[in-house]
Design a protein around this nucleic acid. Structure first.
Lengths: 253, 253
DNA sequence: CTTGACATTTACGCTGCGTAAACGTTTATA
DNA sequence: TATAAACGTTTACGCAGCGTAAATGTCAAG
């Protein structure tokens, strides 16, 4: 059985351009080329193409497929395992994305559709209440009722967009802290970046900024075990690292 | 607060190239350009960049992000819903890929590691046995013991690679049948492609091919309700469509 | 005044083809 | 048999989102 590009393309359900491309990169060469320069494929090439398409459907790159299929000694099983790990990573990433999108949608729907307007408000209110319940007394004792009330008010007034920014800032802060902690130097670039992010994150909650208040809050992260637990969740010592970074950042003492 | 490219890049955790690119495509322009041509960004740009990066992390394209952020009237919620649907599709696709890779790995490990050599063999044997149990009597009655034995033997001798090809052929056959069925024309391109795929799929099981045997098998797909159920699973009438396509393909009657 | 660290623009490279242009070959039809 | 339609060929740009030079200008420090 002999096939021209078009025939093989139709048989395999790909475009003729694809076959020419595979020829070009040396992935699938025709068995011969006739006197007019036409590519002629035989049964062996059909079978090989099936294999190529199989691996392609698994989401593998053509270069990888070439390795697997052309080097007979290539360890296909190991390649598959590696690919499987990559896919697993992709899925975890996707799941995270989906969760975030869902949360964002919930916030938007609450915020922008009149029908569910209260939903987002309730969402934020719950956040404020939770915060009050968890940290309220200490923060009020330390910063006074006015500061806390203004902070809560600021959260309640946030638009979904601002809310996103805050969440992103927080995520970035945590990531920077994680990296910075590894360096062990709160005065280093990462430590100071973390302190700066923390200041900006704080700016989303506090109406006015002062170095003293900033430093005071950072100190509380170490003094109050509930804060410590939050920041040390992934890596013990992170809260202290942030406190030290903020101390340097604010130039305290 | 004023930032140059590098500063902003460091602050946001992206490369300066990225910021220039965003400027180039009009996604994020600096607040001003100084006399030396340096890009200067202000607080507003920092905030906008945060939003851009937020949507980027959701896996959105920059063009889409531009729409969302530059057109103030753009329906963000709808865009998010749409994106959510796309992500859902991606996850379903990923899950399918992962299942296939896992199955392939199982076959390979059985086939190639000595330790689990029997596993793949057992896998194939089970397939043969199941087949025997389900269709054995009819097929033996129709084609004789020899044909069935040789078919079973062929399956048992398959390498994992051949196995993959067969599975892929089957998938392609089902897909082509599904599309072809919509056209309602078993003599059309898709119908005949399905018949050809079916022949090639058959070639993986049967030692020798004959038009009569091919046609006979296709007829059985209609006569035997277990076959019919298999092919009609997604769309009733598919088995008959395949029978008709094979009738034309083999030039029977 | 030099050095080094920044900034700028221009432009090619990567993946996996789609799509078009410009042109030769085979096949079917008038 | 002439011609048109349907195929084949090569060359090459385009897509997304930057990475990575290369060539060159600017700024702060020693």
């Amino acid at each position: 059985m002999q096939y021209t590009v078009q025939k093989l393309a139709q048989l395999a359900g790909v475009s003729s351009r694809t076959l020419r491309y595979y020829d070009e990169i040396g992935l699938l060469k025709p068995s011969r080329v006739n006197s007019s320069g036409y590519r002629i494929y035989g049964q062996a090439e059909v079978d090989l193409l099936q294999q190529i398409l199989f691996y392609r459907e698994l989401g593998m790159g053509l270069a990888r497929i070439k390795e697997i299929l052309t080097a007979p000694s290539f360890n296909k099983t190991e390649a598959l395992h590696q690919h499987r790990r990559a896919l697993g990573g992709q899925r975890r990433r996707l799941d995270r994305l989906i969760a975030t999108v869902d949360a964002t949608i919930a916030a938007h729907e609450g915020g922008y559709t009149l029908k569910n307007k209260d939903k987002f408000a309730a969402f934020k209110k719950q956040l404020v209440d939770e915060n009050e319940e968890t940290y309220g007394r200490e923060i009020r004792a330390k910063y006074g009722n006015g500061t806390v009330e203004r902070s809560n008010q600021k959260v309640l007034e946030m638009s979904p967009d601002q809310f996103e920014v805050v969440n992103r800032l927080n995520e970035e802060l945590m990531a920077t802290l994680k990296e910075g902690f590894k360096t062990g130097d709160p005065g280093g670039a990462l430590g100071q970046k973390a302190a700066d992010l923390h200041r900006r994150w704080l700016g989303s909650y506090w109406a006015e900024y002062s170095k003293e208040a900033h430093m005071g809050l950072a100190q509380m992260y170490v003094d109050d075990e509930r804060f410590t637990a939050y920041y040390d969740a992934e890596q013990p010592g992170t809260a202290a690292f942030l406190r030290d970074a903020v101390r340097i950042y604010t130039g305290s003492q």
